[in-house]
């Protein structure tokens, strides 16, 4: 019994991590090792020419900046909009809460193409194409239901008695909210913020509709892929994945399946 389980897990782990290893390897391999009928699996030569090429061409830094700024703003705006809603939701009677959460669940299930088309038409008129503002506004539609969901479970986990005790000790309603409730909600707020960030960082469809020239990072990777340049693709993709692995590493201890059900696509 033990041996087959270990073999199964090892096989699944290779399947999960192997492709990323290949990506990293291609990004630092001499072309002769990759562009051949028999590519080698282990790295033999090592070169930084693709990375240098990626950074020197100056094509990757603007998208990198745009994606970083967009994702940061999306995370901040999502928390600002969703936290008050989630706080109210957590204090509502269960039946109301279920109804509203179900509504959020349905909103999340809507196809992006049916949102992207009218939004692109309107943003064209408003002059928001290619802008960070437009992208943030669009990304929020995908992110808000998830963030509201996660924060509602966060606030639900904070017992009302804690707030009542603070009130008894003479805290005003605002002081209670600021000094007690929000402090206790910090882990949930961090998780929700990171999820929103990740969501925006990798978003592809809305960015495609709302971009004429100023690409985001996913569009830049797609551009290299479309050109058929394996090395620039691999280097840019690695660059894009590094912060994600860092963040998900931080997130892992706080992952809950039901949150992710709403959060990962």
């Amino acid at each position: 019994m033990r041996r087959p389980v270990a073999l199964l897990l090892a096989g699944l782990a290779c399947w999960a991590v192997g492709p990323l290893y290949l990506m990293l390897k291609v990004s630092v391999s001499p072309p002769g090792e990759v562009m051949t009928a028999r590519p080698t699996l282990l790295p033999h030569g090592l070169t930084l020419e693709h990375w240098r090429g990626l950074l020197d061409a100056g094509q990757v830094l603007p998208p990198l900046g745009k994606s970083l700024v967009t994702a940061g703003l999306v995370a901040a705006a999502a928390l600002l909009l969703a936290a008050p809603a989630a706080y109210n939701l957590a204090r509502l009677p269960a039946r109301w809460r279920y109804g509203i959460l179900l509504g959020l669940f349905l909103v999340r299930m809507l196809p992006e193409v049916s949102i992207a088309l009218p939004v692109a038409v309107v943003f064209l008129r408003w002059g928001l194409m290619d802008s960070v503002t437009g992208l943030v506004l669009a990304h929020l539609t995908l992110v808000l239901p998830v963030v509201a969901w996660v924060l509602t479970t966060t606030f639900l986990a904070i017992p009302r008695e804690v707030e009542e005790a603070a009130a008894l000790d003479g805290c005003s309603a605002w002081q209670t909210l600021w000094r007690v409730t929000l402090r206790l909600a910090v882990p949930g707020l961090v998780v929700a913020g990171l999820l929103a960030w990740l969501f925006s960082w990798e978003e592809f469809l809305l960015a495609t509709y709302l971009t004429l020239g100023a690409k985001t990072m996913p569009l830049q990777v797609y551009y290299y892929l479309y050109q058929g340049n394996w090395f620039l693709t691999a280097a840019a993709a690695t660059l894009m994945t590094a912060p994600v692995l860092l963040l998900t590493g931080l997130l892992q201890r706080h992952l809950r399946a039901t949150w992710l059900a709403g959060a990962v696509r």
């Binding site: 897990l9 699944l12 782990a13 999960a16 991590v17 492709p19 990323l20 290949l22 990506m23 291609v26 562009m35 051949t36 009928a37 590519p39 699996l41 990740l198 960082w201 990798e202 592809f204 996913p218 990777v221 797609y222 892929l225 394996w230 693709t233 691999a234 993709a237 894009m240 994945t241 994600v244 692995l245 963040l247 998900t248 997130l251 892992q252 992952l255 992710l260 990962v264 696509r265």
Partner: peptide, 26 residues
């Protein structure tokens, strides 16, 4: 290890799989 692909951006998954599934791929 098994959870690693979860956070990987979809476009990166596409890039990676294109490397793996190319005619002269891995």
């Amino acid at each position: 290890l098994l959870l690693v692909p979860l956070g990987v951006p979809t476009i990166v998954a596409a890039a990676v799989m294109r490397t793996a599934f190319g005619t002269v791929g891995y």
